[in-house]
């Protein structure tokens, strides 16, 4: 048999021993820590990536939320503004109406007052005229009846007129 394909006992034994030794030492002191460290690092990297992804999602969620909030706020603002405008308009129109009514009422009152005052004033004037007339009449009468003769004449005249 060709020596190349004849396994020698010595080399078989030494290879078995050496490989077994190498396997156990490397398995315990090299492969275990190395594979452990690689797996651990991969896990941490994956974890970090997942976290980053989650953060990104959270971020986009927040952005969306913000946008919707802004939109909502904008709509609300518009609503409030339009309402305010309406209120303003109604207030203004109301005020105008009120003012109008009040004005009319006051004018009416003023008219009534004026009329009253006019009546009072007229009454006053009438009184004054009456008083004056009476005073004048009195003065005239006084003047006329200053002397006794005249008074007597009148009395006699009056008496004459009385027909019994």
């Amino acid at each position: 048999m060709n020596p190349l394909v004849t396994p020698e006992l010595g080399l078989v034994v030494w290879t078995t021993v050496a490989f077994a030794l190498l396997f156990f030492i490397l398995a315990k002191f090299a492969w275990k820590p190395i594979m452990g460290a690689i797996t651990e690092r991969e896990r941490s990297i994956e974890d970090a990536l997942l976290k980053a992804e989650a953060a990104k999602e959270e971020m986009s969620r927040l952005t969306n939320e913000n946008e919707s909030l802004i939109k909502q706020a904008r709509a609300e603002r518009d609503l409030i503004l339009s309402e305010a405008r309406k209120v303003k308009e109604s207030i203004i129109s109301e005020a105008k109406e009120t003012a109008h009514k009040e004005g009319a009422r006051m004018i009416e009152l003023a008219r009534v007052e004026i009329n009253n005052q006019k009546a009072i004033a007229l009454a006053d004037v009438k009184n004054q005229v009456a008083t004056l007339s009476l005073e004048i009449a009195e003065k005239i009468l006084r003047k006329q009846f200053e002397d006794q003769a005249k008074q007597d004449e009148l009395v006699s005249q009056l008496l004459k007129e009385v027909k019994l």
């Binding site: 190498l22 490397l26 002191f29 460290a37």
Partner: peptide, 18 residues
């Protein structure tokens, strides 16, 4: 092999997570 891989294993321990 032992020198190389035991040294690499210790590097892994020293530089954990790096």
């Amino acid at each position: 092999l032992l020198l190389v891989f035991l040294s690499v294993a210790s590097t892994y321990k020293k530089r954990a997570g790096k």
